[in-house]
């Protein structure tokens, strides 16, 4: 199992952050996990490390509902800086919302690989990492 994946969690829910980190770690899926509690913090980190592939995440698990900058607003900004990023980053929208309006909106954004409804099952996390390594081959 490939475990050199850099995970990035963007979610304002402390409990969620705690549970997802714990799950990733227990499954030994990640080399590193970084977490931000709103989109703006995550975006600032990305801009700071534009050319620093090592620090940039491979996978972002992005929440929708956040203060300051929500998930969709983060995507708008991310698309702007994406050409400057040398690394392929896979983004999953992760939300407790079952509102079809949210799901459809996420589907229209091509940079988002999938929409995952909370809570994330361990199997889902595993398949995410598997898919990543498949794509690399």
């Amino acid at each position: 199992m490939n475990n050199d994946v850099n995970f990035c969690i963007v979610d304002d829910d402390d409990i969620y952050q705690f549970t997802i980190k714990k799950t990733i770690l227990s499954l030994n899926l990640a080399k590193n996990i970084i977490a931000f509690s709103d989109g703006e913090e995550a975006l600032n980190y990305m801009i700071e490390n534009l050319n620093n592939d090592k620090e940039l995440p491979d996978v972002i698990l992005l929440d929708i509902n956040m203060p300051i900058m929500d998930g969709f607003q983060f995507m708008e900004e991310y698309i702007k800086i994406q050409p400057k990023i040398g690394k392929k980053i896979t983004i999953y929208m992760v939300s407790s919302s079952v509102d079809t309006a949210d799901i459809e909106r996420a589907e229209r954004i091509s940079e988002i690989s999938d929409y995952i409804i909370k809570p994330i099952e361990a199997d889902k996390l595993k398949s995410i990492v598997e898919e990543l390594s498949n794509n690399e081959i």
């Binding site: 409990i15 969620y16 407790s96 509102d99 909370k118 809570p119």
Partner: peptide
């Protein structure tokens, strides 16, 4: 619907995870 999906489901899913 919005409130239930955002504001009720989130703690519930947290509870499940915990």
């Amino acid at each position: 619907a919005h409130i239930t999906s955002h504001n009720l489901r989130a703690p519930v899913s947290n509870l499940n995870s915990l």
